[in-house]
Amino acid sequence: MIRRREGLLDGALIVLVILIVWQGLYAYAGAVALTPPWQTVRYAIGLFGTPSFWGHLRGTLAAFGWSLLISAVLGIALGLWLGAFRFAGDVAEPMLTSLYTIPKVTLYPVILLLFGLGPSAKIAFGVIHGMIPVVLFTLGAVKTIRPVLLRTARAMRLSPMQTARHVLVPAVLPEIASGLRVGFSLCLLGVLIGEMFASQRGIGFLIINGINSHNVRLTTAVTLIVILFAVGANSALLMLDRRLHHSR
């Protein structure tokens, strides 16, 4: 209980420090760089009352949703497959790791040339960012599954389907949740970057548009919305993640 109250106090302090730094930055750099906290919050709330903002938001959320769905399905399937065949997994893992570390922004022109301008390019861009961590986490989970679990399943003469349903999936679920959490963030990153380069719609477009037209109020407010969404979703997923890891 004391630990909990301490945590709340610390959380409040952190938020306070962030607000002070923000206000300080405003005092230092002025209105050409960013707007102060209170004004930004008010403007951001105001944005939600305008229909055009909802259009941009819907565009981004739709592209994000699709890319997350594709990353999750393909990523988990590929991860399970590579994990089940140890040789394939050993061959593929370093390749996937180096794919993870390359600056994928540079591939954007190729994606555009292949998919054309529009939502499919954004979705593809989200997928190439978000899918790899899902594969890597799933692969790692299947590879390090405790052999005794599989032996037990065999001893109890479970069918392959039953083994998957009662042993494999519960054993790798926590890791898959971690992978999906990282994939979630990276899909969002990919879609936003995609919109920043070549799109006429979406949150990323609003940001780049705000930069180009020196609309600091808009840029700061949209940035705040993106951060709150990303941090909020991540915290929720992190809680789920921890619960899954502990329930084991």
């Binding site: 230092y28 940035t223 951060i227 990303a230 941090v231 915290s235």
Partner: peptide
């Protein structure tokens, strides 16, 4: 560390490029 932990945990959830205009202005 306990206080900063949530910040670290969600740091990479924020697409860092949204700060780019601010950095350019600064």
């Amino acid at each position: 560390r306990r206080a900063i932990d949530p910040l670290l945990a969600s740091y990479y959830a924020v697409p860092i490029f949204v700060f780019y205009p601010l950095l350019v202005a600064l």
